[in-house]
Amino acid sequence: IERGKNYGWPIATHGINYSGLPIPEAKGKIVEGTVGPQHVWEKSPGLSGMAFYDSDRFKPWQHNVFIGALVGQELIRLQFDGDKVVHEERLLGELNKRIRDVRQGPDGYLYVLTDEDDGALYKVGLKQPL
């Protein structure tokens, strides 16, 4: 994100209203004079909560972004090369739980909170070689 740039909302969008109808102000996905997105989900996974991973505990995750998904019911990991997304991975789908929030703890693990009346808190990490 750069100061003073026009990122288009709501005239340039890939999105739709919650009703399924188009955004009334939208003029298309790409509109002259606006900066387009670098990564798009044509069908929203229902993003909720995001953490930038900067711990030394799990080196393969350094500088990755982790995003909770309410609709997708998973944790999304985005890997970057500079400012470009080069890999996307879906994690924790086997839980069948809406992911409300994700945070990096001071111990380098990720903590994932689910979105139910009896929601759970999960500690997430990579298997380390012994």
Rank of each mutant, 00 (worst) to 15 (best):
Y7L: 01
Y7H: 04
P10N: 14
I11M: 13
T13I: 09
G15I: 13
I16M: 12
N17L: 15
S19N: 14
P22M: 06
I23C: 13
P24I: 10
A26K: 13
A26Q: 09
K27L: 14
G28I: 11
V31K: 11
V31Y: 11
G33R: 11
T34L: 11
T34V: 08
T34I: 05
P37H: 08
P37V: 12
H39P: 03
H39E: 05
W41M: 03
E42K: 10
S44F: 01
S44E: 09
G46N: 08
G46H: 06
L47R: 02
S48H: 07
S48M: 11
M50W: 00
Y53F: 12
D54A: 12
D54P: 06
D54T: 15
S55E: 03
D56L: 15
D56K: 15
F58H: 10
F58N: 11
F58E: 03
K59W: 01
K59G: 02
W61F: 08
Q62V: 12
H63W: 10
H63Y: 11
V65M: 08
F66Q: 14
G68R: 00
L70S: 01
V71P: 01
G72A: 06
Q73K: 14
E74F: 00
L75G: 01
L75V: 01
L78W: 02
L78Q: 05
Q79Y: 04
F80G: 02
G82W: 15
D83N: 14
V86I: 15
H87T: 12
E88V: 15
E89L: 09
R90L: 07
R90D: 03
L92W: 00
G93T: 07
G93I: 05
E94K: 06
L95T: 10
I99S: 02
R100V: 06
R103N: 06
R103S: 05
Q104K: 12
P106S: 04
G108Q: 07
G108S: 08
Y109H: 12
Y111V: 05
T114H: 03
T114C: 03
Y122S: 00
K123P: 00
V124A: 01
G125S: 04
